[in-house]
Nucleic acid binder design. Structure first.
Ligand SMILES: [Zn+2]
Ligand SMILES: [Zn+2]
Ligand SMILES: [Zn+2]
Ligand SMILES: [Zn+2]
Lengths: 155, 155
DNA sequence: TTGACGAATGATACAATGTAACATTTTTTT
DNA sequence: AAAAAAATGTTACATTGTATCATTCGTCAA
């Protein structure tokens, strides 16, 4: 999908919530959308400086990421300390609980929708030992197809 | 289980691999075992200074944690940037792939053994979208029973 | 006993990630 | 135009992590 289309959809998504996708916010989101992988806040600050020639301090990037995340436009990957554009910006309703497959070799991320029954099973297993599942987002350390090949196949 | 017992078992575990549980390593492991929760490397350096009166620099703590992890005596929690003592030090064989339930409120951690069939299902789902599961360790954001009560029950 | 060697730890410096607090600018509303 | 709210800038600092070299400690052989 064309990144311009995604950004337009994101802008509409913001409007519909009474928020604005400002120029800076659009820059950050565009950086994530175009890179197709997970980036740190500092990566994104560098991106704005190097590729766009605009200055954007890391503190601002953090604020903007927080904003984008609150609207479900990006996700924070806790295991990687990085952020990715939501893969479902354009298919509005599908904005459910995400699972992330993160390639440990190249950083590419696949966001897959969660299976309801799978989460239920997980949640029940957790309750059984006296805990309560507070966040259904899963992050799985993976290798993408390309990197599996490069590293000599699956063992 | 008494922490002295655990430390003795850990020492034996090291010996059986031709490694040594030195005084410093024992201090770090003891800190994790006694605290019953996840601690950062800097937390552990503070622990050694404040509670034991011994000096142990963070760089050394990192090295020691790396050592302990290589022997399966501690685990690193990637979502929290913290470390926990393995709950299965004393039941040697049970040292399988762990799942961690991490209370987001108090930091207590429950390490549960993984269900083989669960992992298989997960692994297959991942393969289906062209990725390969590289690490079975799951970390789940939870609330422990105590903290659920304190925070007014489950929503 | 001593010297050599490797393992373990100390020490210094720095990189990367993240947050708090306050100032300034921009936009919107009145 | 003035006031209020939203967005961004700026500074300072806290936390987590790594790289590199120096020193100490334990072991073993000459
Ligand atoms: Zn998403
Ligand atoms: Zn890859
Ligand atoms: Zn364990
Ligand atoms: Zn708790």
């Amino acid at each position: 999908m064309k990144s311009e289309t995604i950004l337009e959809q994101a802008a509409l998504h913001c409007e519909s919530r009474g928020r604005k996708l400002t120029a800076k916010r659009r820059q950050v989101l565009a950086g994530l959308v175009k890179s197709q992988k997970a980036l740190s806040a500092y990566d994104l600050a560098d991106y704005c400086r190097d590729k766009l020639g605009t200055s954007l301090l890391p503190t601002s990037v953090y604020r903007i990421l927080e904003f984008l995340e609150s609207l479900g436009l990006v996700h924070r990957l806790n295991t990687a300390n990085k952020y990715v554009a939501c893969a479902h910006v354009t298919c509005d309703g599908a904005n459910e609980i995400p699972q992330f497959l993160i390639c440990q070799s190249c950083g590419s991320v696949k966001e897959i929708g969660i299976t309801k029954s799978f989460v239920q099973g997980l949640s029940q297993a957790v309750e059984k030992v006296g805990f309560h599942l507070a966040n259904n987002q899963l992050e799985l350390e993976c290798l993408c197809a390309d990197c599996v090949v490069q590293q000599g196949g699956v063992q």
